[in-house]
Amino acid sequence: MRCCLKIRSEYFFSIRFYGGVIILLSLSGLTGCASVEPWEKGMLAKPEMGWTPDPIEAAMESHIFFSKEGSSGGNVSGGGGCGCN
């Protein structure tokens, strides 16, 4: 009996035990993950939710990205990703 208790207490304080607990807790956290559907992005599409809320600064940055890096769009939810700009 003492032997078993010894093994159990050794297991309780082992890295493997805590590793298992961390993995289980992480997996249980996945149940809280929710994807934002395309039609639910109204709040994200507001100008104040953009990387640069100031419209003049945003236009300047967009121009820099377009002229220096050849990329455009995708900085706000309302105009990016639909291939329509």
């Binding site: 395309p38 992005k41 639909c82 291939g83 329509c84």
Partner: peptide
């Protein structure tokens, strides 16, 4: 199964989907 905004579906005279269109130009 809308994947982006706007998305449109053209339904024929029987109400069946005939064409799916994503985005707009």
């Amino acid at each position: 199964g809308v994947k982006g905004m706007p998305t449109s579906y053209i339904l024929d005279l029987q109400g069946k989907i005939r064409y799916v269109h994503s985005g707009f130009r």
